[in-house]
Design a protein around this nucleic acid. Structure first.
Length: 506
RNA sequence: GGCGAGUUCGUCUAGUUGGCCCAGGACGUCAGGUUUUCAUCCUGAAGAUCAGGAGUUCGAAUCUCCUACUCGCUACCA
């Protein structure tokens, strides 16, 4: 049997990072088994449809480099892949279930059901539409046949509910947790077909997974309670059920509970792959891409949240992940998202990238600042400072002085490193640098060191004050490399400017 | 409330059939080293009585039972 898996999001908003991980595991599993990875859009709830969500999902996967073999936007032999476009297809399946005694028509209104629930709540009980209560409700089980026909024909609103056989143990075997048993009398008669003519998840999902020949259902653990229900449904249709793999949840970094959109805003990390503007609320949520993460880093980090290769290896490319992935190494417990670890992964990936690969990102940052400089110069700067970056966006913070002379000088550093007479000492260094024609870094270094020794100067004092003049702070890469990149003329200009600004302020 | 699932350092986790685990790695933390500085990098340290209890066993993180806690589900949402 071919391995066919699907990622089936609802276009109700941006793709949550937990959803991305679910998709990733599906992808890895498919590729590992030379199978097919397909994208199906589950837009059966018209009330929750959000404009732009589907396009967002497609773009997010494009950025991440996860490609679908089949589905929305790609096509394939099992289309259409948008459930709203498959609408007409579901009703006959629901009706088949009614004919076979696995389902029934129900005419109860939302108000009536609400009232029942309220009533039960008052008695500290829960109302459930099930084997115990269905005979007291308005449905094709309790109404005379001609009344049912009349109602259906007159266009009364109705839903189709699944009818569980009474008191049967349902066994569900899943790939992560093994066997789970539940008794059917505990389950409620889920609506399969809604009064608006759309199927619910519980029908559409089963029908589509069957029609699309899905072999493995890898989805979030929040679906675990529905597994017995779905298994029963496959049985009702007489179909073979796919294998289930309920993935542990992604938890918020502090406290407990599912990672939610709000946690990102609150704790300062993205919960979405791409930035998202909510068309309704007008709110903007940050994305990994815009926050300066590299897609491979996000993939690697996500892969390890709930799975591991069984050894100590942590840095893995997509191909390596595919090679090493296996469902039985997926953990059972939820994993807390860690910003520190995410940061570390990103740093490692930036380190691995060449200046050529990094160049487009940083050239864009510079262009946005209105700076255009030679590509080779920018690449030299990249090679020098990439090891100091956690995020692509740190570039300006760490390297701005290579493009714009500092106008402010860190007071703390000044206090420690800039004493009386410092200006004159720097001018002396300037003339040494200027005298070296053509400029040579090693030669300059040796000459300056000799000068410091000969005049019994304090090396830390001199070099750090020069650094402050050039950079604005007492931080940064090796000083003579900075001088070399900046050029001696610019060094002299910056020293003079620093002397002017600093000694005027003293 | 009901049902289900989960529970190893602060966090992610290793720990396949009980002994090589008084529990290993990584992130983070701390301390040294490297550096004119900061960051990187290198070295090292602290950090889990394996949720708790009771059993089985010569021997349990690994098996059994009980308890606790946490999470998930409990819609004509997915």
């Amino acid at each position: 049997m071919n391995t066919r898996v699907r990622f089936a999001p609802s276009p109700t908003g941006p793709l949550h990072i937990g959803g991305v991980r679910t998709a990733l595991y599906n992808y890895l599993f498919a590729k590992k088994n030379n199978g097919t990875f397909l994208l199906r859009i589950e837009d059966t709830d018209q009330t929750r449809f959000v404009e732009g969500a589907e396009a967002y999902i497609v773009e997010a996967f494009k950025w991440l480099g996860l490609t679908f073999d089949e589905g929305v936007g790609i096509g394939g032999a099992h289309g259409p892949y948008r459930q709203s476009e498959r609408k007409a297809l579901y009703k006959p399946y629901a009706e088949q279930l009614v004919r076979d005694g696995w389902a029934y028509y129900a005419f109860d209104t939302a108000e009536e059901l609400d009232a029942k629930r309220k009533e039960a709540e008052a008695e500290k009980k829960t109302f459930q539409y099930d084997a115990n209560t269905r005979m007291g409700m308005v449905n094709s089980l309790t109404l005379p046949a001609e009344e049912v026909t009349r109602r259906l024909e007159s266009g009364d609103h109705y839903v189709i509910r699944f009818k569980y056989p009474d008191n049967v143990d349902i066994h569900v075997h899943d790939l992560i947790r093994g066997e789970v048993v539940i008794n059917s009398s505990l389950l409620d008669d889920k609506v399969l077909y809604k009064s608006d003519g759309m199927p619910t998840y519980h029908l559409a999902n089963i029908v589509d997974d069957h029609l699309m020949e899905i072999s493995h259902v890898i989805r979030g653990e929040e679906w675990l309670p529905f597994a017995p229900l779905h298994v029963m449904r496959y049985k009702a249709f007489g179909w073979d059920a796919p294998q289930f793999a309920p993935l542990p949840l992604l938890l918020k970094p502090d406290g407990n509970g599912k990672l939610s959109k709000r946690d990102g805003d609150r704790l300062g990390f993205p919960v979405f792959p791409l930035q998202w503007h909510d068309p309704k609320s007008g709110e903007t949520s940050s994305g990994y891409r815009e926050s300066g993460y590299l897609p491979d880093a996000v993939i690697n980090m996500l892969a390890l949240l709930g799975w591991n290769p069984g050894n100590d290896q942590e840095m893995m490319t997509l191909d390596e992940l595919i090679e090493l992935f296996s469902i039985d190494k997926i953990s059972k417990a939820g994993a807390k998202f860690s910003l520190d670890k995410a940061k570390w992964f990103n740093h490692e990936y930036i380190l691995q990238k060449s200046a050529d690969e990094l160049y487009p990102h940083f050239a864009k940052i510079l262009a946005d600042k209105g700076i255009s400089t030679e590509e080779s110069y920018i690449k030299s700067v990249i090679d020098l400072i990439k090891e100091r970056l956690n995020f692509l966006g740190d570039f300006w913070d760490q390297a701005s002085y290579f493009f714009v002379a500092p106008t402010e000088y860190d007071p703390q550093a000044l206090k420690k490193r800039w004493k009386e007479g410092t200006g004159e000492k720097l001018r002396a260094i300037d003339s040494i640098l200027t005298s070296i024609q053509p400029f040579d870094k090693m030669q300059a270094h040796d000459a300056v060191m000799k000068h410091i020794q000969d005049n019994e100067l304090n090396m830390g004092q001199v070099l750090n004050s020069l650094r402050i003049a050039l950079v604005g702070t007492a931080k940064g890469p090796e000083l003579f490399t900075i001088i070399e990149l900046l050029g001696v003329d610019e060094v002299v200009r910056r020293v003079e400017r620093a002397i002017g600004v600093i000694e005027a302020g003293q």
